[in-house]
Each structure stands twice: as structure tokens, then as C-alpha cells.
Amino acid sequence: MKNIVKIALISSAACLALVACAKKQQPQTDPAAEGAPAAEASQDSAAQALTQAQADSLAAEQARLDAERLEAERARLEQLINQIMSEDVYFDFDRSELTEKAKELLAQVGELLLKEQRFTITIEGHTDARGTEDYNFTLGAKRAMKVKEFLAAYGIENSRMESVSYGKEAPKAQGETEEAYSQNRRANFRVNIKQ
């Protein structure tokens, strides 16, 4: 029993030490140009301390710029993703052929995907509320496939695209009007970023 308590104490102490180490190490990893020479220099003159501080602030500045750049990149990607996700492609009733307008829009999506090679997409095919659940699944699958084929012809690798049918189960607009129906006869995109 005592042994177990001891082991527990030792291991928790080890944990604490590890955590402490991790915390201490953190600031060292940040500045890019640091390391062994800086440690040696620490015992030296005030002038050296000054250059040290300058280097620190430079490094901090660099880190800040990096973060800003990352943030800008993230925002840009997010904006692109949102753009792709908002580009719904619409279809005529019980049809899966791409309209001229759909093709124009898909060309823009294709362009984005060519530029951002890390993007992979899921193409979702949807139908309006009319008709049976079963047949609408097949219709949604056909629509998603037509979009996938277009993008493949545009130069997007098939491995970056997945198609799935939601049939009439995920309408964008509610109601039994032609307006709502035409909004729901669509294919849309989900975007993932490949790691």
C-alpha cells in the first residue's frame, strides 16, 4: 500500500517536473536565432545583453509577422472556402444536365481548386421536394456526378473529389412554391483542407 502511494507521489512529481520543463522550454523555442551561443554569452558584458534584447525583439517581431501572415492566409482560405460553399449549382426539374450558368460557375470553382491544391471537396446533390425519396436519391447522385465530371474535365484530380446524394432530405428553402423548388434543385460543396 505504502509502495503504491510512493509510486503515485513519484510519478506525480515527475509529471510536475515535466510540465515545468515544458513551460521553461517554451520561450526558448520562439526566437529563431537563439541556442547554445546565447547561453555562453549570458555571462558577458552589457553590450552583448543589448544585442540579445535586440535579437529578442526582432524575433518577436518576426513571430508577430508570421502570425499575421498565417492569419491572413487563414482568412483568405476561409473566404475561398466560403466562396466555394456558397456557389450552388442549379438544375431543371428531373434533369441532371448542367446549364450554361452552372458551367460558368463551376469553371470558377475549378479555377479555385486548381490554385489551392490542398482543398478537397465533397459534392452534395439535392432535389426538390416533389417525387419519391428513393428516386430523388438517384437523381441527386446523378447531379453530384455531373458536377464531378465537369470538374474532372477542368483538371481536378478525382482523388480530391467525393460525391454524395442527399435526395430531397436537405432542402435549402422551405415551401411548395416553384421558387423554393428551384432553390432546392442544386449541387453544393463542402470543402476540406488536406493536411
Partner: peptide, 9 residues
Amino acid sequence: FSSSKDGKT
């Protein structure tokens, strides 16, 4: 049952 793959059911 039905299965859809690559637009074919």
C-alpha cells in the same frame, strides 16, 4: 437494396 456510386445507382 440500391447503392449509388459515382452517380450510378
